[in-house]
Design a protein around this nucleic acid. Sequence first.
DNA 1: GCACCTATGTGAACGGTGTCAAGATAATCT
DNA 2: AGATTATCTTGACACCGTTCACATAGGTGC
Lengths: 212, 212
Amino acid sequence: MASLQAQEIRPYHHGDLSRALIQAGRRILEMGGPAALSLRAVAREAGVSPAAPYHHFKDKCELLEAIAKEGWMELTSAIAKARARAPDARAALTNIGVAYVCFARDNPALYRTMYDGACDRATMPDHAKKGDSGWRHVREALLEAGADPAEERDLELATIAAWCAAHGVAEMAGFKEFEPLKNALGGEEPFVRAVLEHVGIFAAMSRPKTPG
Amino acid sequence: MASLQAQEIRPYHHGDLSRALIQAGRRILEMGGPAALSLRAVAREAGVSPAAPYHHFKDKCELLEAIAKEGWMELTSAIAKARARAPDARAALTNIGVAYVCFARDNPALYRTMYDGACDRATMPDHAKKGDSGWRHVREALLEAGADPAEERDLELATIAAWCAAHGVAEMAGFKEFEPLKNALGGEEPFVRAVLEHVGIFAAMSRPKTPG
DNA sequence: GCACCTATGTGAACGGTGTCAAGATAATCT
DNA sequence: AGATTATCTTGACACCGTTCACATAGGTGC
């Protein structure tokens, strides 16, 4: 019944428990999904009593947010890398979308945790909009692909649209119904790419302006 | 501390407890969100002991699925109505999208419950694909809007894309960051319509075929 | 070195949860 | 009517989030 780590005799004070708790939480998330992520389980996994986390996080919710924050930062860096690797501006947007969906596929429980927090507060996390953020990468990719910088409203609408589409695909791409099509297209990534390109904003950037 | 209903002296046997439990569950969902939806709370709300639900649902999960099923049926009928009301085939698709997002906005907790179940099983619910389903409505709307019936693969990709986009918008349209834009566009529904139209598949049905 | 303060850990406890087994009660079938 | 079956209740179990009082360790001023 030993915990998976931290079995070396730990000193009474841990040293960096908040960090250890976040890592333990992510480990549990990967192994057992969001349902397995109880505060007590995290404490157990970190080799610490159930009350210890309360000296570092006021809430279970606050720990979840710390875990989610890590996820957002990693998602941002995946987006940045995908954009940097693109051969041209038009490809960048699709690359970002594919990277986004792949991140969600590779870290499903983490991704759910990230968005659950966002939905509960009805807010994008800070890291998605400010500074070096995924949001900004999408916006800039749209501009480089030919969006009119003078039409701020259209640009914001397009950014929202792209983000929403990627999120939708991210949450649904794993559904079993799509397996035949996935196989027909030669795997998961081509499938995701094809869906994203059908969504439109990723492929049809240069269509005539929307009326309005 | 009285329960909200069922205070008339109920006979020992309820009569139609499973139905009452589903209704109680929906009431709790509306008032307190998904977090408030415990099996015991549902039993309390229905005026029944905590173990009673187990004679009708093997699990908490099974009750949630029953609640979600109701949600899917109502969503389907909202989609059907929206499609029927559209002046022409092209408008039908956008109308469906708007109806979808509005349903999610008006029943946020129910919508979350519906999709949580789907995500856990990595499957669309039966009612979304078979028979008179939202899925089929989208597919038919795409065909009527000019999709090539011979290109089955493209049609399925487009259906997936439209559904994913609507889902993404549904989950994010309530975010606070978008309020300024919402106001600028004259309210929630115009905002949703604009985002959906920017997503592309809803407006750019007639663009040239995708390569591949 | 020593007393003290603060940060960080432990243990036990509270009410809440999902679930189950055993028993009570009512409807139904013969 | 008696027996069977479906339904509901009571009571228990382990787990959960959270809080409290207390124990321990690291650091600071003397």
